[in-house]
């Protein structure tokens, strides 16, 4: 209902001249204004909502970048601050969260799986397929070797104590649930998932 009361206007020198600005007697004002802003450049920026990755509190952040993604321009992140509309942190961030910008642009930031071969002294970039296959193979080997089905007294315990698992701090409820189900099903007891609060 109220939407019908929105009068939209595309502002230009011509539309200002035809609007009440011109009708009240300021006929050339729109042209003067348009000429006056001509030397100024418009800067494009975006403000994107996200969750801070550091811990399970998952504070809301606003990520500011210059450049407009929709125009295929290369955008670069210039600022990160707490999201004032987020119910958890209401615009605040801890020291680490407030320093996220440094982490985003860090030269040491891990961007893809890396592998250090046995005996090697350096990490090399590998594919996700290689990394996941390798992890699965090592987990299987270790579990086959060290899985404890029954304890000394013959009671079934199904423990796997020689491998631990780290979950992620900004997992959703559902992803956290699936992670827990998977890890516990293998018998792993050493499990740290920050999505525990």
């Amino acid at each position: 209902m109220a939407v019908t009361r929105r009068q939209f206007m595309k502002v230009s020198a011509a539309s200002l001249a035809a609007s009440s600005v011109g009708a009240l007697g300021f006929v050339g004002a729109g042209d003067v204004l348009a000429a006056g802003v001509r030397p100024f450049k418009l800067e494009r920026a975006t403000e994107t909502r996200n969750a801070c990755p550091y811990c399970a509190v998952a504070c809301g952040v606003l990520i500011y970048s210059l450049g407009d993604k929709s125009k295929n321009a290369k955008s670069s992140i210039i600022h990160v601050e707490g999201d004032p509309d987020h119910p958890v942190n209401r615009g605040t961030l801890c020291a680490r969260g407030a320093a996220s910008l440094g982490y985003i642009h860090s030269a040491n930031r891990l961007k893809y799986p890396m592998h250090r071969k046995p005996g090697s002294d350096k990490f090399e970039r590998v594919s996700w397929d290689f990394a996941l296959d390798r992890i699965v193979k090592l987990m299987k080997e270790d579990r086959d070797k060290n899985f404890i089905a029954k304890n000394r007294d013959g009671v079934t315990v199904n423990r796997w104590l020689s491998t631990g698992f780290f979950g992620g701090s900004s997992l959703s409820n559902e992803a956290g649930y699936l992670t827990y189900k998977f890890v516990r099903a293998t018998g792993i007891l050493g499990f740290e998932d920050q999505a525990r609060i």
């Binding site: 929105r6 009068q7 939209f8 206007m9 595309k10 502002v11 539309s15 200002l16 035809a18 609007s19 009440s20 600005v21 009708a23």
Partner: peptide, 14 residues
């Protein structure tokens, strides 16, 4: 882009 008119800049609507 279009905007909602300021109540003192009226007359050309789109």
């Amino acid at each position: 882009f279009s905007r909602v008119a300021n109540p003192f800049v009226l007359g050309v609507m789109a």
